[in-house]
Design a binder for these strands. Structure first.
Lengths: 239, 239
DNA sequence: TAAACCCAAATGGTCAGACCAATTTTAATG
DNA sequence: CATTAAAATTGGTCTGACCATTTGGGTTTA
């Protein structure tokens, strides 16, 4: 045979759309077809390469993605194991979007833990001045909501004012960081309906009352409800 | 358990530190050194290959991990962009620089909230493989403790292994960030006695047991005790 | 027989080099 | 100067090779 220089014959042009999303879909489909459950071993990468008709690099990138999200676990010399259940053939929702949403869920999970504690602290430690600030933010949020519907920015500012009143700036800093990460995902991939946060709006007033009353438990419960509404909306989207 | 001493079964030098983790650390370090902020472009993969002395595949796997977590964004033909602030040697950790033990308290406060929840998750979600890893870290911590006394690094690694088992990578990421901030404060201002964490050492074994037993409440309580011991030691120093 | 040992196969991890595809930059052109 | 075309840049994928660890089976040994 001719040495080196392989012509690399014409590739089947059927695809040309981002392989990435297709691979995640195909992988999920395959897992569903094979009835692979959490704890089971996935087919080896070299097999997947043949089965899905893509290079091993591509398979590995997809698996690395899932590994980062804790969906699979790799053991060198042993195999790749499924950790979380993979939903079968979700008809309308491409897996790529699901991965984004998965990431969102994890962010929300952390945010919930932090905000619950920070708000309980705020209910106890808040000064009157900080309370004024919170009331202002609430007014702004309320106006914006009544005029333009759910407004992300004002909502963030309201929460941020509360975090600041906790007495520990670190809470505000980290939650803001998470919030920013969520915003990026939101704006890039609007998850279905736009009114995420709409149903939770009334609860924000309860939050204000709990802070007025310096009731840490009520505040904690309320913010928990608020965040879980968002969480559930995303989970719902995940199907 | 006798030393059957075969060439390859006996290893246990300091490794266990997957190559992968090293790359993530190096990458984070590089980002810190270059003062790369969210929105900025990372060096191209081929440059990173040279800078970090590893193959491009390895670089890509690391970046794919971060992309899955929403930390970076890739644009073909353009570059890879930083989305969230990167954790490690904290150029961006605002607390460490200007604050003393006061800020340590705040950091610990946040850490407590996060770790309590993450460990409860870990107790439920951990896989057997992750449990093995935790056991190894425990052994290492125990050895180091008996030989050299309280050892910060091994302790951090032990906690990190637990965080990783929570199933939500974000916990580990943020706690590591806080941990790093604490380390900076520690080393710059050694808080009196070196044996911070000494009294809490026995509790770490209880932690291991709680995780073995998959008991989230016991795990949560134990870690709470552990962290509060540190917290009180710092408070004591503050007074 | 049962345990210990050894080795080959299986499997994930890394590397190198090439080529593809999208984007950005630069040069050429009118 | 604006437009367009070519070149350089950069992420995306493919192939094939080799390394490191784990697994399992066959062999030896107590």
């Amino acid at each position: 045979m001719s040495p080196s220089v392989t012509p690399h014959t014409e590739q089947d042009p059927k695809i040309s759309r981002t392989h990435d999303a297709r691979i995640l879909d195909d992988l999920a489909q395959l897992i569903a077809d094979e009835h692979i459950k959490p704890g089971d071993k996935l087919p080896p990468e070299r097999t997947l390469t043949a089965r899905l008709g893509v290079g091993r690099s591509t398979i590995r990138e997809a698996l690395t993605r899932w590994e980062a999200l804790g969906m699979v676990e790799r053991r060198q010399g042993s195999g790749t194991y499924l950790i979380t259940p993979i939903e079968p053939t979700s008809p309308h929702v491409p897996i790529a979007l699901k991965v984004e949403a998965e990431s969102l869920i994890r962010t929300i999970e952390v945010r919930k833990v932090l905000e619950c504690e920070a708000i309980a602290l705020a209910a106890v430690n808040r000064t009157e001045k900080q309370m004024d600030e919170i009331r202002n933010c609430w007014q702004t949020l309320k106006d914006a909501h009544e005029k333009f519907g759910p407004s992300h920015d004002e909502d963030v500012e309201f929460h941020s004012a509360i975090m600041r009143a906790s007495g520990n700036p670190l809470f505000n800093q980290i939650v803001n960081q998470l919030q920013e990460a969520m915003r990026v995902v939101y704006t890039r991939k609007p998850l279905g309906n736009e009114h995420i946060g709409d149903t939770s709006f009334p609860l924000h007033y309860d939050l204000l009352l709990a802070l007025e009353a310096k009731d840490p438990d009520a505040a904690r419960e309320t913010i928990k409800d608020i965040i879980e509404i968002t969480e559930n909306e995303v989970r719902e989207f995940l199907k």
